[in-house]
Design a protein around this nucleic acid. Sequence first.
RNA 1: GCUCUGGUGGUGGAAUGGUAGACACGAGGGACUUAAAAUCCCUUGCCCGCAAGGGCGUGUGGGUUCAAGUCCCACCCGGAGUACCA
Length: 949
Amino acid sequence: MEYNFSELEPRWQKYWKEGGVYHVENGGGAKERPHFYVLDMFPYPSGAGLHVGHPLGYIASDIFARYKRLRGYNVLHPMGYDAYGLPAEQYAIQTGQHPAVTTEKNIARYREQLDKIGFSFDWDREVRTCDPKYYKWTQWTFIQLFKHYYDNDANKALPISSLEERFAQRGSEGLHAACTEEMAFTAAEWNGWDESQRAKVLMNYRLAYLADIPVNWCAELGTVLANDEVVGGLSVRGGYPVERKLMRQWSLRITAYAQRLVDGLEQVDWTDSLKEIQRNWIGRSEGAAVWFPLENENGELKNEKSADAAFEIFTTRPDTIFGVTFMVLCPEHELIGQITTPDHKAEVEEYVSWAKNRSERERQAEVKKVSGVFTGAYAVNPLTEEKIPIYVSDYVLAGYGTGAIMAVPAHDSRDFAFARHFGLPIRQVVSLEKDATSDPATWTESMDAKTGYSVNSGFVSGMKVKEAMAAVIDKIEEMGIGHRTVNFRLRDAIFSRQRYWGEPFPVYYKNGIACTIPEECLPLELPEVSEFKPTATGEPPLGHAEKWAWDTKTNSVVNVSNIDNKTVFPLELSTMPGFAGSSGYYLRYMDPRNDKEYFSEQAVDYWQNVDLYVGGAEHGTGHLIYARFWNKFLFDMGMAKKEEPFQKLINQGMIQGRSNFVYRSKRDNNLYISKGLVKDMDEVTPIHVDINIVDNDVLDVEKFREWRPEFKEARFEMEDGKYVCGWEVEKMSKSMYNVQNPDDLVARYGADTLRLYEMFLGPVEQAKPWDTNGIEGVHRFLKKFWKLYQGENTEASKESVKVLHLTIKKITDDIERFSFNTAVSTFMICANQLTDLKCSSREVLEPLVVLVAPFAPHIAEELWHQLGNEGSVCDAEWPKFDPQMLVEDTVKYPVQFNGKMRFMLELPADATQADALEAVKASPESAKWLTGEPRKVIFVPKKIINIVV
RNA sequence: GCUCUGGUGGUGGAAUGGUAGACACGAGGGACUUAAAAUCCCUUGCCCGCAAGGGCGUGUGGGUUCAAGUCCCACCCGGAGUACCA
């Protein structure tokens, strides 16, 4: 029988589907099996369909899921769709086609493509973020976030109702909670306030809150964007300019969890680089908050710690406080109006308005340009009592720390540039060597490193930098003018989007107060709209919806015409961002059809969290942060059982495109020169050519002539009768004609070949260009593998049993360390050796089928049945490795795969190679397993000997 | 700039500190065939040599070690993340 993949693959796919082979239950079944949860980052179903880069991670996780199952685990391996998103909406604006229709169509296409590759997903658990049954729980979680605040003493989220009780009894006294701004009020004040005033105060503490905040506004997309959706002042999607704008927006107080998000990284099994990406993004820095008193009109100190007498700065270098020669406020700083002296007023106001109107992009592009202005006011260094000028400059950011800094030009490069520009003094206070100083006037750059010793620094002079830091903070704390503190770079996540195609907020506005709709009324379904564009008045698309008001009497959605502000109120017009639906989907997979709860206690108790998560590192500062935050919140609520959602994480590398080029002669427009014949690249024009008409870099010239009209008359200068194309690694994209569609490869070689080849290409984690050149090799292997099984059952030779056991060992090791490319190689070696040995023994071949099953499930299933087995190979047992089988006369020695053995012998220090060989042969140990001469003995002085047998 | 990665044949890539280049592609040669496809066998890091054999080789320069692609230090080059975060 021939290996007929196109016949057998669909047949087994049908068998798996109809037999529910991949259906998973929450529980170990009759005998209690261990559980394992393997998850892929679910895809956004784009109109372009899958290209070969997408399935890479899915194949890797599928191999692992199948492997775990064969090892006796109950494996949860679900798949779904991140179905809300901009492209479907943009398409809707252009064509009027409802995004739900587009999305549905794209999902069907994705599903069809995925099914052809033979994944072991349990499709009964599929989720879609745009499904009301699903987003009900996204909305529900939002309501919980709204109804909780973060208590820094309890170090967890607590119900907002307990905060209300607390305020009624004690006011804000003693409260340590995450908030937008610090507030101080008494119980009496609280009790005297009306509903609207209390609502305002509570909003200051809620984990989902509404506030006027500077946002990234993208006019082109007509929406605000989160920080991770903006790169270099441009939107990630579309690359449109983004400006800073103050808007009333929903935000998630993710900063409350900043410390726990940092700490949690210690517990998870992720790559160092991804952990580092997250640490950088969270940006924890330790330092000190210090109050600098202001000098008043009479030149006297206002030596008290209040907002009009002093201002607070944050520094990570308290040790350099003796080197402060000026202060800088950000242009948004509230103190500016108050302290600026009359003679500087005009200048300062002009600067501030210039700085505020500068677009984010301009600001970022001109980072190196120094700008700023003197306020005429002075602060006082609390340790030296020196008078220090106060400047305003936009190199100080409003959003970080307190928006004010102490400038130490000698030891901070930005302060250095500023001081040089304005001719301000530079004073050295840190030196690499004790007591040695140089003249800062001669420096070309500041000395920023946190090493060396303090100099010119009063009581800390002579101390090491680290000691000086501690000593200065101690002193400041003792003086009551500052304290040790930690700052984070992480900002709260802006949660509103002025879009249509997203989860509606379960929020209505009762006379301006944001209220959530009752939980039992969820989901609040996305309404129909006449248009997907913003309204004429600039409202988000939901402003077009007729039926978009909340009736508190009937608890239902009614027409906006009924709004009376007594019982019927307007609903929120923004929708939630893309990361809302993807932040908790892994929990929903545990119990996806539950309409009473997000997921049942029983389900989460069983699965706990994701054991293995596979996906791209590009989500490092987005989804992976938000999901961890979401999970920690649910953990605080007692719902999630593990604080970290994803125990182990593998980042599959990006698959880049490999473009092919033809070289058109500049002298003759119809002449194309084969790569090897091009002598001077300046004489030809490289032109992208569709990789689908190129095979192993050889152009199909006939197809090329037909490809596009301008190539119809093409003539070729061939080498050895072939036209060889050039190639380059680029992004995979339509415009480069280098997109490889997996369906074509499945049709040509079969799913098993595609699966093996994607793994064979290189380590899963590594970025690599797609290149079909080697696919024949793995296809040949499958044919050879197939052939092995076509003979009659015979008795197994010792040699073939040895090959089997070496293979079991190596494959098991390779899978455990996610080295799937070497695993595929191992199979090839194994098949070659068994072919040479003419092995056709069932004893060897049957376990081998099980080893191959995770990688090439279709062929494995077919051969499993050819060998006369019942049921699916998915339920077989992983073969046991027996080291005894590797040595003929069973001896316990460490045996390595390539036949290398290593052991130690005592030899004299001056022993030679020949002595070593003699010693090996004479050794009673080796006599048991060494038959004849060893092929090679590698000997080095001391006692280690490698023997190749 | 800072942080993290990586640098091995013509190509993709193998190597718990222990034979560098497994495996595969490509290339060259051969067998089978009227021919082609398919299949199989041999060669294939570089240099010298008919050969046996020898020399050189993992970005560069140092170091640790009996032994370094692997560990340490410095530098060069690529990729990613971040970017006035005090």
